[in-house]
Amino acid sequence: MIADVIKPGLDVLFCGINPGLVSEATGHHFARPGNRFWPVLHLSGFTPRQFAPSEQEKLLELGLGITNVVARPSARADELTIDEMREGGALLAEKVRRYSPKVLAVLGVTVYRAAFERKKAQVGPQEDTVGGVRVWVLPNPSGLNAHYQLPALAEEFGRLKSSV
Rank of each mutant, 00 (worst) to 15 (best):
F14R: 03
L80T: 09
E127L: 11
Q50A: 14
S100I: 02
L62S: 03
E155C: 11
G20F: 06
C15Y: 04
G65S: 05
V135F: 04
F37V: 03
V12I: 09
K161I: 08
A115D: 01
F116I: 03
V133R: 00
P48G: 12
L10F: 04
R36S: 12
K58H: 07
K120E: 11
D4N: 13
A146E: 15
T110Y: 13
L107A: 03
D83P: 00
N18Y: 06
I66E: 01
K58C: 01
Q50N: 12
T47D: 08
R49A: 12
I82V: 11
G34R: 15
V123S: 08
T67C: 08
P151V: 10
T67V: 05
E24M: 10
L92K: 00
A152C: 11
G158R: 09
V130M: 02
N140V: 03
K7A: 03
R32W: 13
G27Q: 07
M85K: 09
V111C: 08
R97L: 00
L104M: 08
R113W: 06
V12R: 00
I2M: 12
E57T: 09
S142Q: 10
L59I: 04
L10W: 06
P39V: 14
S23R: 07
K119F: 07
H28P: 00
L138R: 04
A154Y: 08
G27F: 03
V106C: 05
I82H: 12
S162Q: 14
Y99V: 02
G63H: 06
G143N: 15
L144R: 15
L13H: 01
I6L: 00
T110L: 15
R72F: 10
E24N: 13
T67K: 02
R49H: 11
E24T: 12
V22C: 11
V111Y: 04
P19Q: 12
A115S: 09
S142E: 08
F37E: 01
E117F: 01
E61Y: 01
H147G: 13
E55N: 08
L160I: 09
L62P: 02
A52T: 12
A114F: 02
R36P: 04
G27S: 09
P53M: 12
V111P: 03
G143C: 14
V70A: 06
L107K: 02
I6F: 02
E87M: 10
L41N: 07
T110N: 15
L144N: 15
E127C: 08
T47V: 11
H29K: 05
L107M: 15
